[in-house]
């Protein structure tokens, strides 16, 4: 999956939660991604190179440590 798409999807989620409840945005973003993203998508988000990760909105970056790490290494994408 292209990193651009992963970044765009994550940022879209953050955009909603930042405005819906700014205080809890990071937790909400993490919960949403944990609930709806297949492990290899989460793995890809967690493994974004720093240059790409810079494009993530603050709420996504704050959510990264709260993401459930995929149980097994994702197949090469």
């Amino acid at each position: 999956m292209s990193p651009d798409r992963i970044i765009r999807m994550a940022n879209q989620i953050a955009t909603f939660f930042e405005t819906a409840s700014p205080a809890e945005a990071a937790e909400d973003v993490a919960r949403h991604i944990n609930d709806f993203w297949e492990p290899r998508m989460r793995a890809q988000l967690l493994a974004l190179p720093p240059a790409s990760a810079a494009a993530l909105r603050p709420a996504v970056r704050a959510a990264l440590p709260l993401l459930r790490p995929p149980a097994r290494p994702a197949p090469a994408a």
Binding site: M1, S2, E38, A74, P75, A76, A77
Partner: peptide
């Protein structure tokens, strides 16, 4: 217990080979 791929995600993952 892990959510699976949605249709657009399946197509993305297919293009990526997984």
């Amino acid at each position: 217990p892990e959510p699976g791929l949605r249709i657009p995600n399946m197509l993305d993952a297919a293009a990526a080979g997984s």
